[in-house]
């Protein structure tokens, strides 16, 4: 009869090795370059074509005109499924992926972010 416990050797061998898991949140995994994380918006590039709004499967983007050829974007990050279709659809590269993945919030309102159009660049206003 065969003796059970074939994996015992493997287990003992690993008892001397460091753990395979990361000590999150003290050690954070690095995401690959094209990771589909939080989306950012560049109001300077946006032409207001609203292709992103049309293609977003989760209805997570709104583009509003604020003044002459100036647009601001409001994101509902709680609805976003991070598919990055908006990034693909945008003809002007006004939307970009980032590697940011720690997106949990206690308050849902913090998921509503607006990228205001300012002459001197982007201001992210997390207030609803």
């Amino acid at each position: 009869m065969k003796i059970p416990g074939k994996m015992a050797k493997e287990v003992l061998r690993h008892s001397l090795k460091p753990p395979a898991t990361l000590n999150y949140p003290y050690v954070k995994p690095e995401m690959p370059d094209n990771f589909r994380g939080k989306i950012v918006f560049d109001p300077v590039r946006c032409i207001g074509c609203r292709m992103c709004v049309k293609d977003c499967p989760a209805l997570a983007i709104e583009i509003a005109a604020v003044g002459d050829k100036k647009f601001e974007a409001r994101f509902y990050l709680d609805r976003c499924i991070y598919c990055a279709q908006c990034v693909d659809s945008c003809p002007k590269d006004a939307l970009l992926n980032t590697k940011e993945y720690e997106l949990a919030q206690i308050d849902r309102q913090n998921h509503r972010i607006t990228f205001h159009a300012h002459a001197d660049g982007v201001v992210v206003d997390p207030a609803p």
Binding site: M31, P32, F35, I81
Partner: peptide
């Protein structure tokens, strides 16, 4: 998979 597609689950590679 995350390296090739951009995420570990729901790869979103097809169009």
């Amino acid at each position: 998979l995350a390296l090739l597609c951009g995420n570990r689950v729901n790869y979103g590679i097809n169009t």
